[in-house]
Simulated assay, not measured.
Amino acid sequence: MATVVARQGDRDRMSHFIDTVLAADDAGEAANLSYRACWIGESHHHQLSDDFIAAAPSALWAGPKLLDHLVRGLTPDHGFLDLNVRSLWVLLAIRPALPRTSDETGHALRRQLLAMLDSRELSRRARRELEVIRYAIRLAEA
């Protein structure tokens, strides 16, 4: 339901979903990443049930396709912006080397971070999470 109303401009329900389901524990965050990775074709294994969502992400997929997908979703008008930012934040927390493994996506991420942080469309949470991502990237490059 949160994704449907977010596409129609109601970001409050998505924020509630992120606060109560995803951020409630690591299992929710991992399930979100695993689902999204499977949905975009990151995993090389066909899933016959939703049981894979509960597995540790490291066992299922590496992350470069998911990173690229999430970076392309860093636009102010994207209906799932807060979910994309949260997913990117979690992905880089569990796979901090990803921006360095793909130069093109890493450069796109840096450009999008600057553009997004200048945007007035960000929620407080998204802005905070993007600032953390930018800081983590700067530390990794130092």
Rank of each mutant, 00 (worst) to 15 (best):
L88F: 01
G9C: 12
H16A: 15
F52T: 09
L114G: 14
L139F: 09
L67A: 14
G73F: 04
D82F: 02
Q8G: 05
V21D: 12
R127M: 02
M116S: 05
D26R: 15
S102V: 00
S34C: 15
V85W: 00
I137V: 12
R127G: 00
R128T: 14
Y135A: 13
L91E: 02
I18A: 09
L114I: 08
A24D: 12
S15F: 04
E42F: 09
A115Q: 15
A126L: 01
S123M: 02
H107E: 15
L66A: 05
A136N: 04
I53T: 11
R127C: 03
M1G: 05
I40T: 11
T105W: 06
D118H: 10
L74T: 11
T20S: 11
G41P: 13
R124E: 10
K65P: 04
A55D: 13
E141C: 06
D77R: 01
L130T: 02
R128H: 14
L74D: 07
R124L: 14
Q8V: 06
L98T: 12
S87R: 07
D10P: 04
R111P: 00
S43P: 07
G106P: 03
A54L: 09
R7M: 11
L139I: 13
G63I: 03
D68P: 01
A24E: 14
L122T: 00
Q112K: 15
E29I: 04
D50W: 03
S49C: 08
T101M: 11
E104W: 03
P99N: 04
L117W: 01
